[in-house]
Computed example of a mutant assay.
Amino acid sequence: MTFAEIEYQDKTEIPRNQVINLYSECGWSSGQKPEKLLLALANSHTVISAWHQNLLIGLGNTISDGALVVYYSHLLILPAYQKRGIGREIMKRLQSRYINFHQQILLSIDHAVPFYEKLGFQDSQGVTPMWIYDGNDIDVAKKHD
């Protein structure tokens, strides 16, 4: 597979079975809530998806107020396609839309921090990320270390 064989799309409507497959293969708990997941993607500010031979292999999305703040909520690549620059390309396409925003925010699993640092993200010194979370992705993420 070459980089040229990957097609990137910018649309929020993606076939249900492809979305569920991607999230399930990546071990994300949101894949266990397909209706909510599809609604969340449909209501995203931006969704960039990566395709190889009609297979959804990656996806990144944002939530934003459209002016000051953007939150990069999901970035996932099928395990067989990881470490090939697909996630980096999705993030670059997303970031290009929000380059002049006051705040660009994301939460990163510990082992992915170096990836995001290469894209310009840094630890938010003096700010503590906080959440109320209804999922088990953290346990899944530890299994992939």
Results as ranks from 00 to 15, higher is better:
Ser29Trp: 05
Ile77Leu: 03
Arg97Ser: 08
Lys36Met: 12
Ala40Ile: 00
Ser30His: 07
Ser44Glu: 02
Phe121Arg: 00
Asn17Cys: 00
Ile109Thr: 09
Ile86Thr: 03
Tyr116Pro: 01
Phe115Pro: 00
Ile109Phe: 14
Ser96Val: 06
Ser64Ala: 09
Lys118Cys: 06
Asn21Val: 06
Leu94Lys: 00
Glu25Lys: 14
Leu59Asp: 01
His102Cys: 11
Asp10Phe: 09
Arg93Gly: 00
Ile109Glu: 13
Leu37Phe: 07
Thr12Glu: 08
His45Ser: 15
Ile99Lys: 13
Ser24Leu: 05
Pro129Leu: 10
Glu5Asp: 14
Asp145Gln: 11
Trp28Tyr: 15
Gln53His: 15
Gly31Glu: 09
Val127Leu: 15
Lys142His: 14
Val140Glu: 15
Ser73Glu: 13
Phe115Trp: 04
Thr46His: 07
Asn61Tyr: 00
Glu25Asn: 11
Cys26Tyr: 07
Ile14Ser: 04
Pro79Arg: 04
Thr12Arg: 15
Val69Phe: 11
Ile99Arg: 13
Ser44Lys: 00
Lys142Leu: 15
Asp10Lys: 14
Trp28Glu: 11
Ile14Thr: 06
Gln122Asp: 10
Ser124Met: 14
Asn100Lys: 13
Arg16Trp: 05
Asp145Val: 07
Pro15Tyr: 01
Glu25Pro: 02
Ile57Trp: 02
Asp110Phe: 02
Gly135Lys: 01
Asn21Thr: 13
Glu117Tyr: 03
Lys83Asp: 12
Leu107Tyr: 12
Ile138Lys: 12
Glu13Gly: 04
Ser96Ala: 13
Asp139Met: 08
Gln18Ser: 15
Phe115Leu: 01
Asp123Trp: 10
Thr2Tyr: 12
Ala50Tyr: 07
Leu107Trp: 10
Gly66Asn: 09
Gln125Leu: 13
Glu117Gly: 02
Ile57Ser: 03
Ala112Cys: 06
Tyr72Cys: 03
Gln104Ser: 13
Leu107Glu: 10
Val113Thr: 06
Leu37Arg: 04
Leu59Thr: 05
Gly58Tyr: 04
Gly66Arg: 04
Ile90Lys: 00
Ile138Trp: 10
Ile48Tyr: 02
Leu22Ala: 02
Leu75Val: 12
Ile6Leu: 08
Ile57Met: 06
Phe115Ala: 00
Thr128His: 10
Lys83Gln: 14
Gly126Trp: 03
Ile6Asp: 05
Glu5Trp: 02
Ser64Gly: 06
Gly120Val: 01
Leu107Pro: 01
Gln82Ile: 01
Leu38Gly: 02
Tyr133Leu: 11
Leu78Glu: 04
Gln18His: 11
Thr2Ser: 15
Leu119Ile: 07
Thr46Ser: 12
Asp139Val: 06
Gln18Cys: 08
Ile86Asn: 01
Tyr8Cys: 09
Val113Ser: 03
Ile77Val: 15
Leu94Ser: 00
His111Ser: 09
Ser44Phe: 00
Ser96Arg: 11
Ile138Gln: 10
Asn17Gly: 04
Gln32Asp: 11
Asn136His: 14
Pro34Glu: 06
Arg84His: 15
Thr46Ala: 05
Ser44His: 01
Ile57Tyr: 04
His74Glu: 13
Lys36His: 12
Leu76Ser: 05
Glu7Ala: 14
